[in-house]
């Protein structure tokens, strides 16, 4: 089932807000967008878009505790990859939304993230497609599931040290 234009707009605004917080490295606020139970999944598959996580490797396969650890580490000043922090701007587009059987909102979107690393004066492009599962939470949403399918997940890549 697809949503009304207003509802779809609300969903898009949430995705843009999530992208903004990640770009600004407001990671505690970004973490607050997640449903804080152990069932959540923050997932970047490795080698292909569809892997069986019980049998196959991912680049990131975080539950809530590990995601919290990831953010704590990134903010600690001891994660050398992010000292100094990357400058980030991401574009989220091609948003498709529909209702899942369990009442969650399913979205697919494309992203293009430009990462500027001051220390090496490099610009790295991260491009891919995202699947979100969102739980309706009053006027907003909580993220239950986010799967990031990088187009280069099967090629040699540079360190992925920001929250994608």
């Amino acid at each position: 089932m697809t949503f009304s234009a207003d509802r779809h707009h609300q969903i898009e605004q949430f995705l843009y807000h999530e992208a903004f917080l990640a770009d600004e490295s407001k990671l505690d606020d970004w973490l607050a967008l997640w449903d804080s139970n152990d069932e959540i999944t923050y997932w970047v598959p490795c080698n292909k878009d569809d892997v069986d996580p019980l049998k196959e490797l991912s680049i990131i396969y975080d539950n809530y505790d590990r995601l919290k650890l990831r953010i704590g580490r990134t903010n600690s000043g001891l994660a050398w990859t992010q000292e100094p922090k990357s400058k980030l701007r991401r574009t989220v587009s091609n948003v498709q939304s529909s209702a899942m059987e369990d009442g969650k909102v399913l979205t697919y979107s494309n992203f293009h993230i430009t990462e500027l690393r001051e220390k090496s004066r490099e610009i790295i492009n991260w491009i891919g497609r995202t699947e979100h599962h969102l739980i309706t939470d009053g006027d907003s949403f909580k993220i239950a599931f986010k799967k990031i399918m990088l187009i280069n997940n099967n090629l040699e890549m540079s360190q992925l040290s920001f929250l994608i």
């Binding site: 970047v44 490795c46 490797l57 680049i59 990131i60 994660a79 990859t81 540079s158 360190q159 040290s161």
Partner: peptide
């Protein structure tokens, strides 16, 4: 891996 807590330190 490229986003691992140990290895990303080493990559850097």
């Amino acid at each position: 891996g490229p986003a691992g807590f140990q290895l990303s330190d080493d990559l850097e």
